[in-house]
C-alpha cells in the first residue's frame, strides 16, 4: 500500500501548530483590562473557558498528531471492533469533562455575574440615565434634580436635543440631554434605561464589558458600575444601517465630585 510519509509528517506538525497559534493569539491581548465591577467577572468567565477549552484543544491535537504519525505507517489496522461496553465507558470522558467545563463554569462563575447585570439595586441607589439610540447617534438624558423624566415627542426634537423633550412639561423642564457623550460617576451603580427611535441598535462599552441591544418599542435596562475614570469608546453592535460602523459615542467616567460639578455646570447652561 502506498505510504505518504511527507504528508504524515506535515499533518503531525500542523496538528501541533494549531494550539500554538491559538496560544500566540490569546497571549497578544490588545483589549484593556475591565473597568467595571462585573467586567472582571466576565473576563474570568472567558478566561476559565479559554483555559479549559485550550487544554482540551491541546490534548485533542496531540492525540490526533500521534494517531496520524503512528497509524499512517501501519499496513493493516491492528484493532477491530471494540465491545459496546468499552465504547460507552469512553463516552464518560467527554460527558464528565463537558459537564464540568461548560455547565460547571456557568453555574459557578457565570450565573453570579449575569445576576449582577440584571438585578436593579434599591430604588434611589443607582444613577438612572436614559439612553436613546437612533440612526446613527446616541443621546443620553439625565432626569435633573427632580429625578423625573419629562414627556418627549418627535415634534420637540432639535439639533441639540435629538430625544425631543417637552420643556413645558414640569418633569421635563430640568432634564439634561447630551448627544454622543455619556458622562457617569465612577464607583456608582449606573442604571441605563434604553430606547430606540428607529431600528435595533446595541450599546457596547468594550472596556466596561457592557453590551445590550436597544430594541424599538421596549425599554431595556442594563446595570454596571464603572471603576476607572477616563474616556472610552461606545460602539453599536447590532446592524442598524449605513452608518452602523461610525455610530460612535464616548463614555466619560468622572470622579463623583467632578461629576456633581459637571451636572451643575450643565444645568446652568
Amino acid at each position: 500500500m502506498k505510504r505518504s510519509p511527507i504528508t504524515a509528517l506535515l499533518l503531525t506538525v500542523f496538528s501541533l501548530l494549531v494550539p500554538v497559534y491559538g496560544y500566540f493569539l490569546w497571549s497578544k491581548k490588545i483589549l484593556p483590562a475591565p473597568a467595571s465591577l462585573h467586567g472582571t467577572g466576565i473576563d474570568a468567565m472567558i478566561k476559565y473557558s479559554m483555559v479549559c477549552t485550550g487544554l482540551m484543544l491541546l490534548a485533542g491535537h496531540v492525540v490526533l498528531a500521534v494517531f496520524i504519525w503512528k497509524y499512517s505507517r501501519q499496513d493493516r489496522a491492528t484493532i477491530g471492533r471494540v465491545a459496546g461496553k468499552t465504547e460507552w465507558r469512553w463516552a464518560l470522558l467527554p460527558l464528565i469533562l463537558m459537564t464540568v467545563v461548560a455547565e460547571g463554569g456557568v453555574l459557578v462563575i457565570g450565573l453570579p455575574v449575569w445576576k449582577q447585570l440584571h438585578v436593579t439595586g434599591k430604588p434611589g441607589e443607582a444613577v438612572v440615565i436614559e439612553v436613546v439610540a437612533q440612526q446613527f447617534q446616541w443621546s443620553f438624558r439625565y432626569p435633573g434634580p427632580d429625578g423625573k423624566f419629562g414627556e418627549t415627542g418627535l415634534k420637540y426634537a432639535t439639533d441639540y436635543d435629538l430625544i425631543g423633550v417637552n420643556r413645558k412639561d414640569p418633569a421635563g423642564k430640568d432634564d439634561l440631554v447630551q448627544t454622543a457623550v455619556l458622562t457617569v460617576p465612577a464607583g456608582k451603580l449606573i442604571h441605563l434605561k434604553m430606547k430606540s427611535k428607529d431600528v435595533i441598535h446595541s450599546l457596547f462599552l468594550p472596556v466596561q464589558r457592557v453590551k445590550q441591544d436597544v430594541v424599538p418599542g421596549m425599554v431595556i435596562s442594563t446595570m454596571f458600575t464603572p471603576t476607572k475614570t477616563g474616556k472610552y469608546d461606545i460602539l453599536c453592535t447590532e446592524l442598524c444601517g449605513l452608518g452602523h460602523y461610525k455610530m460612535r459615542g464616548v463614555l466619560n467616567v468622572l470622579e463623583p465630585a467632578a461629576y456633581e460639578e459637571w451636572l451643575k455646570e450643565e444645568a446652568e447652561e
Binding site: 500500500m1 490526533l64 494517531f67 496520524i68 497509524y71 499512517s72 501501519q74 499496513d75 484493532i79
Partner: peptide, 10 residues
Amino acid sequence: ATLYGGSLRL
C-alpha cells in the same frame, strides 16, 4: 477513536 489502531491512507 475511529482512527485508533487503524491504517491511515493519507
